[in-house]
Design a binder for these strands. Structure first.
Length: 235
DNA sequence: AATAGACTCAACCGCCAGAAG
DNA sequence: TCTTCTGGCGGTTGAGTCTAT
């Protein structure tokens, strides 16, 4: 949706991502990882800032991103965690497999906040009651988050085994990664090339783009088929 | 059918913390 | 210790879509 594509002073594109840009980013990150978001666009052949690439990947292109309606359980979790953590969206999102902080934040502002204003959710009330009854639930929640950071991060999300049981709501884009898994075999078993894996094993220094990355030279080797924003990835 | 207002959500912005030099 | 770089986070924006009139 959204912002009119434009360029900033340095010639970097802004606004809505095109299918072609998505394709380049997905191809690059799944193949080489995101060893440095700021440098990545240059090597991936993208006229975007690194931040924009990271955001696009984290919120949209990453494997196992869950889209669509929120379940009652998910909404209850958001309300409960927001009650105890406040606007710590990333911490809240970490408890909801497949949901991003941006998505949780949007859902809160567009739906849940209003709903609670109109008619305080029974779940929130129950939560208050439970807190009063047991006194320790909130502390438990905080402790869990502080001492044992949720593992629902890149590596677990990227594994099909760890995917949510609500598979139908998971983005169709995942077909892309499943297809890649078939190709590479080791895709899921190797450390996921994402935030937790910035540098691939035998590459400590970024090499010359022209020499090493066909992505910049017309003949582009994509591990996947054509991506269509409406239909997802056509393999 | 046309229009206005409300709603949604992808994307941007600015700030902060941690790491490295 | 200071500076610079980078990733991450939360707040905000604004164009597209939906709904009511």
């Amino acid at each position: 949706m959204v912002r009119t594509p434009c360029c900033d002073k340095t010639g970097l594109r802004k606004g809505t991502w095109t299918p072609e840009e998505d394709r380049k980013l997905v191809a690059y990150v799944t193949r080489y990882g995101c060893w440095n978001w700021r440098q990545l666009p240059k090597y991936a052949g993208l006229a975007r800032c690194g931040k924009s690439c990271r955001l696009r990947w984290m919120n949209y292109l990453r494997p196992n991103i869950k889209r669509g309606n929120y379940t009652k359980e998910e909404e209850d979790t958001i309300i409960r965690l927001h009650d105890s953590l406040g606007n710590r969206w990333s911490a809240i999102a970490a408890q909801l497999p497949g949901r991003t902080d941006n998505e949780v934040k949007n859902h809160w502002h567009t739906t849940l906040k209003k709903r609670l204003k109109q008619k305080p959710c029974p779940t929130a009330e129950n939560w208050e009651n439970e807190k009063n009854k047991h006194g320790v639930i909130q502390e438990k929640e905080e402790t869990k988050l502080n001492n044992n950071p949720p593992l629902i991060l890149e590596s677990s999300l990227s594994s099909p085994q760890a995917a949510s049981s609500d598979e139908n709501s998971v983005s169709d884009d995942n077909a892309l990664f499943e297809a890649y898994e078939e190709d590479s075999g080791s895709f899921w078993t190797e450390p996921f090339l994402s935030d937790s894996y910035y540098m691939w094993s035998d590459m400590s220094v970024p090499f010359e783009a022209e020499a090493e990355f066909p992505l910049l030279n017309g003949e582009i080797l994509y591990p996947f088929g054509f991506y269509d924003q409406l239909d997802g990835f056509n393999l």
